[in-house]
Amino acid sequence: MTLPDTIHLSFTSSRSAVRRALEKLMQHLQNHAVGEEERGRIQLVLAEALNNIVEHGYPGAQSGPIELQCTLTEAGLDLVLSDCGARIPRRVLLPNPAPPPSARSDNPPEGGWGWFLIRELSANHAYRRDGDRNELRLHIPYSGGHIES
């Protein structure tokens, strides 16, 4: 394998398009011998970030373009997500974010974990608003042992 290796995907925002993009990317990572545990982590982070764009960036009946660039390096995966939807709210990007919703058994939460999972499973993120464009960069390091030979 020659590193780094970059794949670009672009699609119109919808839940089913997100699924297809994730499946395509997972196949690509598998072809590049990225292990199952790593693929699971990568898929979860990306699903949360892409679902956020579909649900909050292009809310309701809106839709628009999403671009995903994924670069495989020796240390992990560098991801760039861009879209032309609504700006990501400042509160979710603060250095000390709200904790995940409490797992209380009398009335358990049905959501609110998205950004918690993104932060928990990626090393860092950088957000930039450029005109009417959002750009979110995420790095997902391998946890060790990663690339299967």
Partner: peptide
């Protein structure tokens, strides 16, 4: 499966 179990554990929803 491991990937599914992980989501429950990270969010602490394995406790409910």
């Amino acid at each position: 499966q491991p990937n599914v179990d992980k989501v429950f554990r990270l969010t602490r929803m394995d406790t409910i």
